[in-house]
Write a protein that binds this DNA or RNA. Sequence first.
DNA 1: CCTATCTCGGAAAGCGCTTGCCAAACTAGG
DNA 2: CCTAGTTTGGCAAGCGCTTTCCGAGATAGG
Lengths: 382, 382
Amino acid sequence: MTDSAGALAASSDATTEPRDTEPRGTEPRDTAPREGQVGSQVTLQDVADRAGVSLTTASRVLSNSPRRVGRQLAGRVHKAVAELGYTANLQARAVATGQSSMVGVVVHDIADPYFSSIAAGLMDVAHPLQLLVCLSSTTEHEAGEREYVALMRAQRARAVIIIGSRSGDQAMLTALRAEITAFTRSGGRVACVGQDLLGIDTILPQNAAGAEALARALVVQGHRRFAVLAGPAGLLTAEDRLAGFLTGLAAWQVGVDPRLIVHGAFTRDGGYEAMSTVLAMSSERPDCVFAVNDVMAVGALARARAAGLSVPGDIGLAGFDDITTLRDVYPPLTTVRLPLAQMGEMAARLVLTNANADQATVIPVPGEVILRDSTFRLPPGR
Amino acid sequence: MTDSAGALAASSDATTEPRDTEPRGTEPRDTAPREGQVGSQVTLQDVADRAGVSLTTASRVLSNSPRRVGRQLAGRVHKAVAELGYTANLQARAVATGQSSMVGVVVHDIADPYFSSIAAGLMDVAHPLQLLVCLSSTTEHEAGEREYVALMRAQRARAVIIIGSRSGDQAMLTALRAEITAFTRSGGRVACVGQDLLGIDTILPQNAAGAEALARALVVQGHRRFAVLAGPAGLLTAEDRLAGFLTGLAAWQVGVDPRLIVHGAFTRDGGYEAMSTVLAMSSERPDCVFAVNDVMAVGALARARAAGLSVPGDIGLAGFDDITTLRDVYPPLTTVRLPLAQMGEMAARLVLTNANADQATVIPVPGEVILRDSTFRLPPGR
DNA sequence: CCTATCTCGGAAAGCGCTTGCCAAACTAGG
DNA sequence: CCTAGTTTGGCAAGCGCTTTCCGAGATAGG
C-alpha cells in the first residue's frame, strides 16, 4: 500500500521521487519561497534557489535538455522539486519553446454516440503521445467550427480535427476555410472526418457507396417500395446517403416516390416524426424504410411500434452507422457499419504524422452492409 | 452571401473587422515582418510596428485593458491586425496574466453514453463562458485521474472536474487526493460527479436511494425473486446501487439468493455474461433481474432473447441511468433516471462559481424511478 | 496667465520558462 | 608542461504578452 502523494511529472521527463509527506516539505534551506501559500505558485527559480543551483541548471535537469547535468546537482534539484511540490508551468514552457502539445477537436454534439465513438478512438492515440485534447461541441451554433479553429490558432495548438462537416452553406465554408488556412500557415495541422470540401486531410466515410450497397442488398432481400427518412435538407452526410441509396435502387430499376423521401432532424425525434409523416401518407405503405442514420432509425422504430406495426413483419427498417449502443435494439437493425473508433484513430494519426505532403491526403473509409432482422422478409416475395 | 474570411477575435475582446481577402493583406507599410511565411507567427510587435504605435498601445487596444486608447491609434491598430491576420497568443497572455481559461474534465470512457451525456451538459455551460474544455478518458488506466489532475496543475488550469469515481482502492485514492490538494493550493478548483470521497465539491447521484426506490416499486409490481447483475466488484457506483436495491427489498421482507448476485463488467458485454450466469443457475429462475446500469441491462436483454425468454413475459428486467439512446429499446426498460446533462451543468457551475466556501459542497441528485414495460407483470401475481 | 487635474502614449520591468554562448574545470595527448 | 578537446555550470537574452510608472500634452479652474 505504497501511498505516493504529491507526485508531479506531468511532462514526460520531470520524473521525481514523490515524497509520502505533504509537498510543503521540511524546512527550506536557502531562501524561504512563498511555498505553501494558497494561490501562490512554486517557480523554477524557487527550486533553483533551494537546490543552490542556477535557474539554467534546474531547467536543464527538468526539461529534456540535450545538455547533461552532473549527478550531484541533478540530485539536489530533484530533491528540491520533491520538497517544494514543484510542477513546471507548461504554458510558460510552451511560450519559451514555441511548441504546444494541444490538439483541438470539434464535434457537433458529444452526446451523440456517432461523435463520441470517433472521439474515443481519437483519444486512444492522442493519450500515449502525451497530448492535451481539447474538445468543443458546436451544437446549434453555426459558426462554431470556425470560432474553434480560431481559438486553437490563438492557443497555438499543434493540430485541429474537425469531425462532421456542417451544412453546405457556402459562406460558412469559405470562412472556415480561411480560418484553416491561417491556422495552417502558422504551423498547425488540420484534418477532418467527413466530407472532403475543405481541401485538407480527410477521413472520408463512403456514405454514398455504403448507402448504395445497402440499397442493392435490400432489393435483393425483396423490398421494392421504399421510403427514406432523409435527415436535414442541407446536411451533406445525409444528402450523400440519400443520393447513394437512390443510385443503388436505380441500379435495380427501382424508383422512390418523392413524397416518401421525408426530411427531418438527424436525431431520434427527427426519425420519429419523419416516420409519422411516412405512415400518414395515404398512398400504399412502403415495404421498407431507410433512415439515414441509426439514431433516426430507432426513432422510426418507436413510431412504427406506436402505430402497431411490426418490424420487419409489416415494414422493414434500415439505418446507417452501426452505433455500438444500438446493436441490441430489437429487432436487430440492418445498417451500414462505419468503423467509427478507427476513423478517429486515423484522423489523429493523420494530423500527428509529420509527413506533411503538400497534397491533402484523403482516406476513404468503406462502410459494411450488415443485414439483420429488421429488414428480413419472408417469403422472398414477388 | 457575405464571405468573412480571416476573422480573429478568439479572445472576448480583440474584435476586429475581418477583411474579405486573405489575411496576407496588401503590402506592409513600416517594417516588413515575416508575415506570410509558413510556420512563422505574427506577433503583437509586428502589429505595433505596422500601426506605428508602441507595443504597449497595441496591447491595450487588443486586451481588455482598463486604460483607454485614443480612437485614432486604436483604429490603426485594428487595421494592422486585420491586414496581418494577427491573433493574440493566448499562452503568452496566460503566462503574463497568470490566468488561464482552461478547464479539465476526466471521464472513464467518453464513448460511454453515461459520461458523454454528463460531458455534454458540462460543455453547455463552459462554452458561453469562453472556457477551453480539455477532456481525457482514463479507460483501463488506473492512475489516469491522478495523472490528469497533475497535468492540469502543470497547465495552470482554472478547474478540474472528475466524473465517475474509480474503485475504492485506497492507495489510489490517497494519491489522487494529494494531487488534488496540490492543485487546489495552487489556486485551482476541483469538483467531482460521483462518490463523495475526495472531500471536494461533489455532485452526488443518489445511487442507493434510487435503487432502493426501484426495488420497492418492483416488489409492488409483484416481483419476488430477484437477481442482480452487480457490475464490477470494486466499483462504488455499482456497489451503492446493489446495496440500495437490497435495502429496498429488505423493506418488504424480500431477500436475494446470494448466488443470484452476479458481478461483471459495467458494459453491455458484462451484462450479457452476467445474465448468462444467472440463467445457467440450476435453481428456480428469477422473476426479475436488476442490472445496475442500462448498458448492462441491454446486454442482459440480448442474452435473455438468445435464450428464448421473453421480457417481461418470462422474466422482468430493470436498469439504471435512463440513457437517452436506450429509451427506445424494446421492451421499454424500467430504470432509474438520472438527469445526466444537468449533473454536468451543476458540476461546471460549482467549479466556476467563485463563491468558494471553505467547506466542500455536496449536492445530492435524486434519481427518478421510471416504470416501463420491461418489468410489467400480468396478472399482478400472487 | 498659471497651476491642478486628466488623458493617453511609451519605456521598461516583469510572467516562468528555454537556450546560445562563454568560461571554468577537467581530461587527454604530445 | 603546454595545448587542444571535452564536460559542465551560469549569465543573459530571448519567447509573446501585460502592466506599472513616468511624462507630455490637453483641459479646466481661478
